[in-house]
Design a protein around this nucleic acid. Structure first.
Length: 194
DNA sequence: GGTATTTGACCTGG
DNA sequence: CCAGGTCAAATACC
């Protein structure tokens, strides 16, 4: 098994995330949710919630030029699977899942909530870890992937390796300039904005 | 025709 | 019971 590899991936992804987060000027706050009470599987719908999953809340400010209507994209493709209006927020919260969730069993999910205080700022909460780290359309995993005969993926793996080794700039073309980010926490009430 | 997105309903947790 | 989260069906766009 490539458990080590997976772990490495996670670390790398984390680093990468921080990397691009810094690029965009993002304030990052990681909150690990840990609940003790275990849930029995008696329910007909084992919809697990509050596990030892990792939750990363990232505040990112989108540019006020054009794409402010949509949150900045990371190195993954997301498919919106729901939207709900959150109490206390003027804007609805969007729920996204990895596009390749079914292909690569990528449990990665993210919630995008626009701050009512700053419509230009998005509160993106990343949940779970990505099994598909880069390449929105190409799979990862050297040979673990189902496609082993497709030489097309060969270059992908190489690129990935380069990305992992620090050549991320080559594979992560951030063409969207984000600026003007504000780190504000709603609910704190300690913000003397007058 | 296929895929992604949209909207409502349903379910779970607090 | 309320709020939040997820799924499913329908629709729009590619």
């Amino acid at each position: 098994m490539s458990g080590l590899d997976q772990m490495m991936m996670q670390q790398i992804e984390h680093g990468l995330m921080q990397d691009y987060s810094l690029r965009e000027g993002v304030m990052q706050g990681v909150k690990n949710i840990d609940s003790g009470p275990g849930c029995a599987f008696s329910t007909p719908r084992p919809r697990r919630r509050k596990k030892d999953e990792e939750e990363e809340t990232v505040f990112v400010a989108a540019a006020r030029i054009g794409n402010m209507n949509s949150p900045p994209d990371d190195n993954h493709t997301w498919r919106k699977y729901g939207q709900k209006e959150i109490l206390g927020s003027k804007f609805p919260r969007a729920y996204y899942r990895c596009t390749h969730e079914k292909l690569y069993k990528c449990p990665a999910k993210k919630q995008v909530q626009r701050l009512d205080e700053d419509p230009y700022t998005f509160c993106i909460t990343y949940r779970s870890l990505h099994t598909c780290h880069f390449f929105t359309t190409s799979p990862i995993s050297s040979t673990a992937a189902t496609a082993t005969t497709d030489s097309h993926y060969g270059s992908t793996v190489v690129n990935m390796a380069e990305a992992l080794f620090g050549n991320i700039d080559s594979v992560v073309p951030f063409g969207e300039p984000y600026f003007n980010y504000r780190s504000l926490f709603l609910g704190s009430g300690s913000d003397g904005d007058t």
